[in-house]
Amino acid sequence: MLYRTFRLLFRFLFRLFYRWEIEGVKHIPSQGPVVICCNHINNLDPPIVGAAANRPVRFMAKEELFKVPVLSFLLRRFGAFPVKRGSTDKRALKSALEVLKQGEVLGVFPEGTRSRDGSLGKAHNGASFIALKGKAKVVPAAVIGPYRIFQKVRIVFGPPVDLENFQNQQWTSHTLREATDQIMAEIEKLLSKGHSK
């Protein structure tokens, strides 16, 4: 109930202040495990992507945010869970795979941190590993800003990335990098297409 209420609130606020546009929601499968992989340009990315999606989205969030009392409460109520940045966080990995095991939607920013200039940065392999391990569909997404009051922000979802050929391979750092690069290439396409409009 709380998630639905805040989703409606965010949709109203984003329409009012950012004239937001949403494209490609139809590409998010209506059921089954899904990983939405998106670029990261602003702290508002998680709520704007979550509000735009047609299913509840659970996000990894840096553990520092869970030390802020009220914010921690809200994050947990929204289904977010902490992750330690800069290291392999087995607890966060387990939580992410549990989300997919339950047939839910996981939101991930493969770059791991916000881009300072809006360009797409180098991604970590965590998103591709989680998606492959959780046997989830991977939906690329792009937030096209910048976030400026009363200027347009667009959220574009693309068709699921075909990672089927990686499922039967041994997941080495090399194959995971290939899968990650494939995901990021699709995000780049969405960004390029979006900026050209």
Rank of each mutant, 00 (worst) to 15 (best):
1 M>R: 10
1 M>P: 12
1 M>E: 12
3 Y>L: 08
3 Y>N: 02
4 R>Q: 11
8 L>P: 00
9 L>I: 15
12 F>G: 14
17 F>I: 04
18 Y>M: 01
23 E>K: 14
23 E>I: 06
24 G>V: 13
25 V>G: 01
25 V>Y: 10
31 Q>D: 15
37 C>V: 13
39 N>M: 10
40 H>M: 09
41 I>S: 10
44 L>E: 10
47 P>V: 02
48 I>W: 09
48 I>Y: 10
48 I>T: 05
54 N>R: 14
58 R>G: 00
61 A>C: 05
64 E>T: 13
65 L>A: 07
66 F>D: 06
71 L>Q: 02
77 R>Y: 01
79 G>K: 11
81 F>R: 08
82 P>H: 07
88 T>P: 10
96 A>Q: 03
96 A>M: 08
96 A>S: 15
100 L>F: 10
101 K>F: 03
102 Q>A: 15
104 E>P: 01
107 G>W: 07
110 P>S: 08
111 E>Y: 03
113 T>P: 04
115 S>F: 02
117 D>V: 06
122 K>H: 14
123 A>I: 03
123 A>S: 14
128 S>C: 15
128 S>W: 01
130 I>M: 06
131 A>L: 12
135 K>G: 13
137 K>Y: 13
137 K>V: 02
138 V>R: 09
139 V>S: 10
141 A>N: 11
142 A>S: 14
144 I>R: 05
146 P>G: 06
147 Y>D: 01
150 F>G: 08
150 F>P: 02
151 Q>I: 00
151 Q>D: 11
151 Q>K: 15
155 I>S: 06
155 I>E: 11
162 D>Y: 01
163 L>E: 05
164 E>L: 01
164 E>G: 07
166 F>H: 06
166 F>S: 08
174 H>W: 01
176 L>G: 07
176 L>W: 02
182 Q>F: 00
182 Q>I: 02
184 M>D: 02
185 A>I: 01
186 E>N: 12
190 L>E: 13
191 L>Y: 04
192 S>D: 10
192 S>L: 14
193 K>S: 15
194 G>Q: 07
194 G>W: 07
195 H>T: 08
197 K>Y: 09
